[in-house]
Design a protein around this nucleic acid. Structure first.
Lengths: 240, 240
DNA sequence: GATCTTAACTTTGGATACAAAATCTGGTTC
DNA sequence: GAACCAGATTTTGTATCCAAAGTTAAGATC
């Protein structure tokens, strides 16, 4: 879309998700506009989008405040994502798998297999694994034949861990993580197989289970967001 | 929110859903602003919202066009709604039913019962039935304990028949319709019972089935929207 | 007559100005 | 000390202006 408003949107969203803007922090059109050195017009559209995404909350007459993202919020977003992804898997199984989707899914599976077949988990491959994982989930969500599923999903997509194929690695225990990825990979294969065979019920059930697996890592993820001393920053913001 | 932009949003949305604005019709900021006698600023925000809702499509540099709503779109929206409502029912069953929700649900059930117990279906009661139906579905969606479900749902809520508790009556066959409403009512009672007893699986399955029941009426609903000679209006619009 | 170029027009994004509504702050009164 | 009132300030919504980008159409050239 536009350059300025897109830039404001991207920057402020990143700041919120990185914890640079603390939950409860006040956000106003004029404030952001001055900070980013743009006028209120693009700022307004950006803030409206952020409010629609649920990252900030409108408080009539008192600007916006950064919404706090609790571990429970993350769990909720995963529940919604799981429901929509399960529906997408079922829908694709019912409609049949398009050729382009089959190519993408096979590519994702093949790549992941290579990563996991290595004797030692190579940290360099992790990014690739993540990419392949995202490809798998996005392919099903966006090519299932019902674009409204993705449309609804996009409303919550920017919340932490709600993003398709997002993974939180526990780097303190790589061997266990490798095991976990292997299980996830096997689920991908099952899902692919079920869709290919038009087994809608199996595809749906497996995808639901697979999406829910992320749940155990909600705490880990929230910790990462707020790991830096957000309490200090909140205090500083309050004293301004 | 604001007066002007809200008015523009409401009016144009109604026009599109009523078929007064034909699919494919061109919509521009200046055009709507002049028509509604407001400036481009509130018009811009209203059109942005409509685009987010999916009722109009942005075509860069050439304004927006009214999106056509096919019978298949309606079916898709119902599938998404069913998935989200099923999740909401399950969530409420898991979390337990809040007192305010119980009151609302019982009120809806009691009212519907009165309508259906009449010997002859009274057309005047239909509005009341509709209201009670909406109350039932909205209560579960908005009080289930996961606000993100409603958040995702709102992205598709304005599509025809996707609205919670929307019903399309076939007035040519009132006796059959009465039978249908009776079945729907029995499902409400089962859903209430399942949630009350914390039977999440049953609540989810029943709600899924219940939401899908609307599917058979998708054709009927699309016909109603485009029943007037929309082809003529499209031609007229093209010739302008 | 076809194609390329250019000029006018449309459309949108952004900046600024103004007014209204709401909130905050300070002082005054009881 | 608490409550209320009024002015100052913040915040937001709308209008208008300007510029950039893209689209359309007409005319020139081959």
């Amino acid at each position: 879309m536009s350059s300025s408003s897109q830039r404001v949107l991207a920057v402020v969203r990143r700041q919120i998700l990185n914890g640079e803007r603390v939950p409860g922090e006040k956000i106003t059109e004029v404030g952001i506009a001055a900070e980013m050195d743009v006028s209120r017009t693009p700022t307004r559209t950006a803030l409206a989008t952020l409010a629609a995404e649920g990252l900030i909350e409108k408080r009539s007459g008192r600007g916006f405040t950064v919404r706090s993202i609790s571990s429970s919020d993350v769990e909720k977003s995963i529940a919604v994502r799981a429901a929509l992804e399960a529906l997408a898997a079922r829908t694709m199984a019912e409609n049949g798998m398009p050729k382009s989707a089959e190519d993408a899914l096979l590519k994702s599976i093949a790549f992941t297999e290579r990563v996991l077949d290595a004797d030692e988990p190579d940290p360099d491959y992790m990014d690739g694994y993540q990419e392949a994982n995202i490809l798998f989930h996005e392919t099903i969500m966006y090519q299932c034949g019902n674009d409204l599923i993705a449309h609804a999903y996009e409303r919550i997509a920017m919340l932490p861990l709600a993003a398709l194929g997002s993974l939180a690695f526990d780097r303190t225990n790589p061997r266990r993580e490798l095991k976990r990825l292997t299980v996830g990979h096997s689920q991908h294969i099952i899902i692919f197989d079920a869709i290919k065979k038009r087994d809608a019920a199996r595809a749906e059930a497996m995808m639901r289970e697979h999406s829910h697996a992320t749940l155990n890592y909600a705490d880990l993820f929230v910790k990462r967001i707020y790991e830096t001393s957000s309490a200090d920053r909140l205090e500083a913001a309050a004293n301004e």
